[in-house]
Design a protein around this nucleic acid. Structure first.
Lengths: 306, 306
DNA sequence: AGATGCCATAGGTTGCACCTATGCTTTCGC
DNA sequence: GCGAAAGCATAGGTGCAACCTATGGCATCT
C-alpha cells in the first residue's frame, strides 16, 4: 500500500542522489530509507533506483514519479495547513444555533463581531425554529446554540441562562397601555401571535399559558402569523394586540408600528435566553467563541443573568 | 504523522457518515477505522467527528479537510497510475545509448520504431562518443547501449555482439578502388579520419592499428575531423581517402560524395556492434524493448551475428 | 594497495494496525 | 415503555512493519 512516508523518502533520495544523505536529511538511519524505497518499489512493481556501486541513480520511472510524488506531498501539506488555519479561525465555517428573539436582535451584530475578529471565516447562524434547533443539537449536527427557553424539556442538555428580556404587551390603542396588563385583561384581549407553526413549543406562548392558568382560561389568539415582524405590523394597524419581548418591541415598534406602544405585564414575566449544548460534549474553540460573543451581545441588550 | 490510510478512512467515514459502514466499505473491522480516525484527530489536534449516540457527525473542520483529503488521495492515485503506465510504455522516457555508425544509420529508424509501437513515450538516444557512453553505462546512468566494440576494455560489462559491418576503403580516385586494399597500401594512403576527439577509443582506428601493426607502421591520417559526414565530403573532394563501415558508405556516398566509391580491405575487417550493459544489472522492460528493436534494425542493415 | 564512502544484510526491539469479544448508549419497533 | 437492534468505544491479543545498531561487500579516491 502506497504511503506518504515512502514518497517522502523517495523524493529526498531522488534529490540528494543518495540513501545515506536522505537518511541524514530526514533524521533516520540509512537502512530505514533503504527499506522504504524497497517497499515503494515493491508496491509499484518497478525499479526506481539503480544501485550502482557508490550511490544510487534514478531510473526513468523515478523521473516520471517525482512530480507526482511532489504533488501528493504538497496536497497533504495543504490539508494539514488548512486544518491548522481552521483551528485558529483563519478560515473555515463556524456554525451556531440561534433562535427566536435572540436572533432577531443580535444576529447581525453577532455575525459582524465574528467577521471583525476573524476576517477569513464563514458564519452560519442556524435557527428556523426552536424544535428544529433543539433537534439539531440533540443529533449533534449543531454544537451549541443560544435560544429562548421556557420550561424547555432538555434532558441531556446543559442549559446556561445568560440574559432575560421582559415580555411586554404591545398595542396601537393607548387605552390598552394605560396600566400594566394583568392575566385577566390578557385573557380578554384579542391577540396576534407569531411562530404559528411552532406554537406548541414557543417560549412566549408557554409563559402566557402558565400566566393564564390561574384564570382558568386558555390563551386565545385571534390571529396567527409566522414571523414577529408581521405580528407587529398587524398590531400597528390596530387589528390586534400582542405580547413580545421588550427588546423586540423597542426595535420593531418605531419601524413597523410607530403609532403603537408597550406596557409591562402584571406580574412581570421574562423570556429567558440561554446557551444550550449537549451535556456530554466538550465544546470546540469555535463554539466557545460564539458563546462568548453571543453572550456579550445579548447581555448588552437584555438584562444579564447569573 | 499524517498518512494516506488515515485520509482514506476519514473520507469514507465522512461520505458514509458511519464508522461501521466505512469499515465494511474498506474491508476492515470497525475498531480499526475508529483507531485511524482517532489517530488522525490526534496528529491534527482537532476533532473531526462528533460521536453522537448512533453514528458520527462531521465537524466544520472535517468539512474543511474533506476537499484537501480528496485532492491528496487523487494525487497519490495519479502517481500510481503514472508509474503503471510508464511500466507499460504508455508514457515516460526511454533512454538508450547508441554510439558510432550504429546511431548514424539506424538511429532515426529506431526512434520511429519505438514511437510507432508506443505513441506516448519520449525517446532519448544518448551517444556523443564511445567513452562518454561507456562512462554513463559504468556509472549506471545509462542502462544499456548498442555501440561499436573493438577490443573494448569492458570489465564488469556484458557485451553481446549482434551484427558486424565490413570496413571499406572509400576514395574519389577510381585507381584506388581497382582492388582490395592491403595493409601495405593502407599504410601509404593519405587518410581522413572522423571522431578525432575520441581517437584513442574509436573502434575503426583500433582495427586499423591492429591491421597495420604487422607492417610496422602506425596508421597515418592526414586529416582529422569530428564527424563522419565531413570525412566523406572530404573524400568526395578528392583530398583524402578513408575507411568507414560499409553501411555508412552506402548511405553517405551517394549523398555526400557521388563521385566516390568503395572497395574491401584485404584481409577483410569488420566493425562489430554489440549490446552492452552492466553485468550485474537486471534489465528493465524498456531497455529490453530497445535492445530488441535496435538489434532487429541493425541486423536488417548489417550482417547478423550469433 | 589501503582508506573511505555507500548500500545491503542481519538481528533485535518497539510500536502500530489489525482482529475478536464485549459493554454502553441511542434509536427503533411493538 | 421496553426489549431489540444498531453504532461506537474499550480491552486484550497477535503479527507485521518501522526503526535501530552492527557488519559485510563493493566501488571509488589517494
Amino acid at each position: 500500500m502506497l504511503s506518504l512516508h515512502q514518497l517522502r523518502c523517495f523524493l529526498t533520495t531522488y534529490e540528494l542522489g543518495s540513501l545515506t544523505a536522505a537518511a541524514e536529511e530526514l533524521g533516520y538511519a540509512q537502512p530505514s530509507i533503504s527499506e522504504q524505497i524497497r517497499g515503494l518499489e515493491k508496491t509499484l512493481g518497478v525499479q526506481l533506483f539503480r544501485r550502482v556501486g557508490r550511490g544510487v541513480v534514478p531510473t526513468t520511472v523515478a523521473d516520471e514519479l517525482r512530480p507526482h510524488a511532489e504533488r501528493t506531498l504538497a496536497a497533504a501539506e495543504d490539508a494539514r495547513k488548512a486544518v491548522q488555519s481552521v483551528k485558529q479561525f483563519e478560515t473555515g465555517t463556524i456554525r451556531f444555533g440561534m433562535f427566536g428573539a435572540a436572533r432577531l436582535y443580535t444576529g447581525a451584530q453577532l455575525v459582524a463581531d465574528v467577521l471583525e475578529r476573524y476576517p477569513g471565516v464563514r458564519v452560519e447562524l442556524i435557527g428556523q425554529n426552536s424544535t428544529e434547533v433543539h433537534e439539531e443539537l440533540r443529533r449533534g449536527r449543531l454544537e451549541a446554540a443560544m435560544i429562548a427557553v421556557a420550561g424547555l424539556e432538555s434532558e441531556g442538555m446543559t442549559v446556561t441562562p445568560v440574559a432575560r428580556d421582559e415580555l411586554v404587551y404591545i398595542s396601537a390603542d393607548p387605552a390598552h397601555l394605560s396600566s400594566p396588563v394583568t392575566a385577566h385583561r390578557l385573557s380578554l384581549a384579542s391577540l396576534v401571535m407569531p411562530e404559528t407553526t411552532w406554537r406548541q413549543v414557543d417560549s412566549i406562548r408557554i409563559i402566557l399559558r402558565q400566566m393564564l392558568h390561574e384564570t382558568g382560561r386558555n390563551p386565545a389568539s385571534r390571529i396567527e402569523v409566522e414571523d414577529i415582524e408581521t405580528a407587529v405590523e398587524i398590531v400597528g394597524m390596530g387589528l390586534a394586540d400582542s405580547v413580545i419581548p421588550r427588546g423586540a418591541a423597542e426595535q420593531l415598534l418605531p419601524r413597523l408600528a410607530p403609532n403603537a406602544g408597550w406596557v409591562s405585564l402584571r406580574p412581570r414575566h421574562w423570556d429567558t435566553f440561554a446557551i444550550v449544548h449537549r451535556a456530554d460534549a466538550t465544546l470546540s474553540p469555535a463554539a466557545r467563541l460564539m458563546i462568548e460573543l453571543a453572550t456579550a451581545r445579548m447581555q448588552a441588550i437584555a438584562e444579564p443573568l447569573g
